[in-house]
Every structure is written in structure tokens, then in C-alpha cells.
Design a protein around this nucleic acid. Structure first.
Lengths: 240, 240
DNA sequence: CGACGGCTTGAGAGACCTCAATGTAGGTGG
DNA sequence: CCACCTACATTGAGGTCTCTCAAGCCGTCG
């Protein structure tokens, strides 16, 4: 880090994140900045991608949260993964692809078209790493649902989201925007909202976290990491 | 399909499967046949890819079963997905990739190097569709673990495996090779082997399936599909 | 034949669910 | 400024699905 006038990180989260995934050159950043100027607002609950239909052009999430979700015939709902600022939506190598899951805005969001990485190898690499991370998050989700109990699931997911928010540079004092309801979180974790509520309460009592008015704060992320036996995803040997 | 002497499908499962994912041209098939001549035997339990280490060259599974697996610090095990004949292992767009999960042989296997799709657009498309299917299987796994009960999980997974084996052309009379132990299946489904055993028994009693000596037979796949509310993955609008 | 891995069975416990009611904060209209 | 509404969070009581621990069984293989 070069020294800078004391201020909040001035870069948009999306650029912070993609720069963290691969060393972006000037041209890539310029392309991103240009795309970001053409941003669009999306209101909560709107679908950005619909399961079974053709995948629209790739988007970049600039602000707000979205999620991949699957609804069963009898109405049961399962969130497959969360989409946070700086994440890509609907990136796809294949011709004539059909969406394998719906992506829906969980809060009001802003998005833009993801600039083509056609002649920008650095950007292409960032996209590839982003895809690899997406896959890692799916695997982590499977492990959570298959083998962790309620408290471990919650701790593990919150830590993952925390680390992802750090990547995008939008964590301050261990706290970050968290626009989910308990019911949404429960539907991500394979729990009922009642049981999630009770478990969150004991975590509050244990001073693991504070969560109110859409802000989540992890009081001792390192301790929580140890407690849940969590291992963060590493996806490239390039950096670090 | 041209008419051919009446016989069992003479093609290796891998070629059958990849041809089903995209219309392969002569050159692609020739490349695959050439690669298959250089096959290698892998004994059960060996690791083909190791989590956290660099991803080796992409492989094609020709025979036997493998699985992506994650082991927790305290020994709990979670199978993330199964790798069946015709599936690709370690396909990757990124430079300097690190494996996000271990891939281990569940039975004795034969594999070969996956031919490069560099100048074979059809083969490249088949690979892309294969990757998209892999992702769809992960999403299905999440939904199973998060929102289905034991019987639904079993039915849903067995149907998925059944459909995948059909793609590779290795199902006969609704029966196929199934080299898993009950404990492995339990570790894929987030259950204990005890509970899996009891649930399988009621499914046997209900005449849903027969399973003995490494052969699994679904007695009424269509009925089971209806019963579990299952929807199969569609990933491309190209074919069908 | 004994050893082994895998399958099966029993009994009891616990984590998580269901149903239902109550509490609370923010937002809107009068 | 208050009444009201809605969405969300919280609490209680009881039920059940799945787990744990443990033992017995069965086929295979050396």
C-alpha cells in the first residue's frame, strides 16, 4: 500500500475485488470504469437470470446483494450462493447456454454490463479466478449443509461472507452491510428461521457477533474461524 | 444415427457421453480415440487431484467411479460430487490454478489425458457443456442437502446418477454399475450410514430399487422422479 | 478358520422442526 | 401525533427425524 491521503478506499468495490483477483492493467481498469458509468438500478426481488432460460449478457454487481436460488415444487426454497458487490453474474464459456439457476436481487442493487475480456488478458484472468472462487463457494456450501451443525453452518457462512467483503474492500471495523432477513439466511443454511433465530441468539450471548439494522459485525473473526474449523478458499497460486 | 449391425453400443462411454453433449466432428472423435489408446489404470483410493495443490493436466475418466471429496479436521467426510465414466477431471480456464477439492478414485479406474480442444471447436463446446453440467450437479447437491429429507435425497441422487449413466450409454434394463458402499453414499448425502441403511431398506420394500453386488437397478424411474419432485438439469439450448 | 469390511438391527438421545402466538420497529395515512 | 399495518424477530410447547453407541451378522479372502 502506498501512502495516501487518509480517506475511505475511493475505488468502487467491484474494481477493488477484481484487482485483488488478478493484477489488472490500465486498460482493464479503464474498461471497468467505463462500464460502471453505465450502471442500472434493480429493485429487490427482481430476477436477473431465470432458471431454464437463455443466459443474458454477463453482468457485474456494483452494489446490493443478490443470490442464486432454487424453489421446489412445494415451495421450499434453497439459496445456492450469494452474489456480493464485485461478483460477476452469468459468466459463461458455452454457446447457447441455459441458466441452471435463477439469480434474484435480495436488496435493491446496482449492476452494469461486465466488460468483454476479449482483448484484455488480465481481465480475462480475473474473470477466470472469479469463476473458480464461485465454484469454491459452492463446494463450501455443500460441506456446510452436509456435515456441519446449525452453529457451525452459521459461523462458517458468515466468515465466508466476511472474507468476501474484505476482498471487495467494504469491511470496516469488522462490520459490513448485511441486507438479509433471518428467513433468507435460514433458507441458505438449510434451517428453519425459528431454529436459526435461536442459534443466532446464543451466538450473540457468546459475543460472537452483533447484528442489527442490516449491519453485521463479527466480534472475533479469528476466534470464530478457529471455533468452526474453517479453512478459506485459495484458488490461484499467482498472488500472495 | 446411421444403421449399424445389431449389437451393444460399441463406443467407449466417454465418447458416447461427449457426443451427447455436442455434435462431435470426425477430428474430435479421432482425437478422443487417440487419447483413449493411452489409458492408465488407477487403483481405488488413489488421489487424482489434491486440494490446495496445483491442478494437473485435465483427465478423462474412462471406467470406474471417482469423487470430489472434502475431509474436515475432525475426520468428518463430505463427498461433493461423483465423477462417472465420460466425465472430465480438472478442466480449468485459469492460469496457475490451485485445486479447490480433492478428487479420489472410489473404485479401480481407468483414465486418459483429455485431448486438448485447442483447434477443435466442437470438442471445446462439449467440454464447456460438461463443465456447465458439473456446476448443475453441484447446485442439485446443495438443494438435496439443504431442503430434502433422507428418502428424497437418496431418490434424487440415484436418479441423477441414473440419468448421467444413460448419457454415457451404460445403463441396461434400468440397471447400472454402482461401486459405492453405503457409507460412501451416506457421506455424499449428509446422512449417517445407519440411517441411510434403514431408509434404503424401506425403499427396497417399496419396490423402488434393487441394489446388490455393486449393481443398482431402479424399478420405476419415472415413478420415482414424480415421487421426489425431481427436475433434471438442462444446460444447453443447442440439442433436443 | 479367523479376520476383515460392509451390512443390519436395537435402544435411547438430541438436534432440529412444526405450529402458533406474541413482540417490535418502521412506514403510511389520517 | 397517533392509529394502524406490515414485515420481521422472538418465544413456547411438543413432535420427529436423524444421530450415537453398540452389538450381531454375513460374505470374502488369505
Amino acid at each position: 500500500m502506498k501512502s495516501r491521503p487518509i480517506s475511505i478506499d475511493p475505488m468502487p468495490p467491484a474494481i477493488t475485488r477484481l484487482s485483488a483477483l488478478a493484477r489488472l492493467d490500465e486498460a482493464s481498469i479503464a474498461a471497468l470504469e467505463l462500464a460502471i458509468q453505465q450502471q442500472e438500478s434493480i429493485s429487490a426481488r427482481r430476477e436477473l437470470v431465470t432458471e431454464g432460460r437463455p443466459v443474458p449478457a454477463a453482468k457485474l454487481l456494483l452494489g446490493g446483494w443478490a443470490a442464486r436460488v432454487r424453489i421446489l415444487l412445494d415451495g421450499r426454497r434453497q439459496f445456492l450462493s450469494f452474489v456480493l458487490p464485485g461478483d460477476l453474474i452469468g459468466l459463461c464459456e458455452q454457446r447457447a447456454p441455459l441458466a441452471v439457476s435463477t439469480v434474484a436481487a435480495l436488496s435493491d442493487c446496482t449492476i452494469c454490463i461486465a466488460p468483454s475480456a476479449g482483448d484484455l488478458p488480465m481481465l480475462r484472468q480475473a474473470y477466470a479466478v472469479s469463476r473458480a472462487l464461485d465454484e469454491a463457494y459452492l463446494l463450501a456450501q455443500i460441506t456446510r449443509l452436509g456435515r456441519l451443525n446449525a452453529q457451525e453452518r452459521i459461523g462458517d457462512l458468515l466468515l465466508e461472507l466476511f472474507e468476501r467483503q474484505i476482498l471487495a474492500g467494504i469491511v470496516r471495523d469488522n462490520a459490513f452491510d448485511f441486507p438479509l432477513t433471518q428467513e433468507m439466511l435460514a433458507d441458505a443454511l438449510g434451517l428453519t428461521s425459528v431454529h436459526l433465530n435461536r442459534t443466532i441468539q446464543t451466538m450473540r450471548r457468546d459475543r460472537d457477533l452483533m447484528w442489527q439494522r442490516g449491519i453485521l459485525k463479527l466480534l472475533h473473526p479469528a476466534a470464530l474461524t478457529r471455533k468452526t474449523g474453517r479453512v478459506a478458499a485459495r484458488v490461484t497460486g499467482d498472488l500472495a
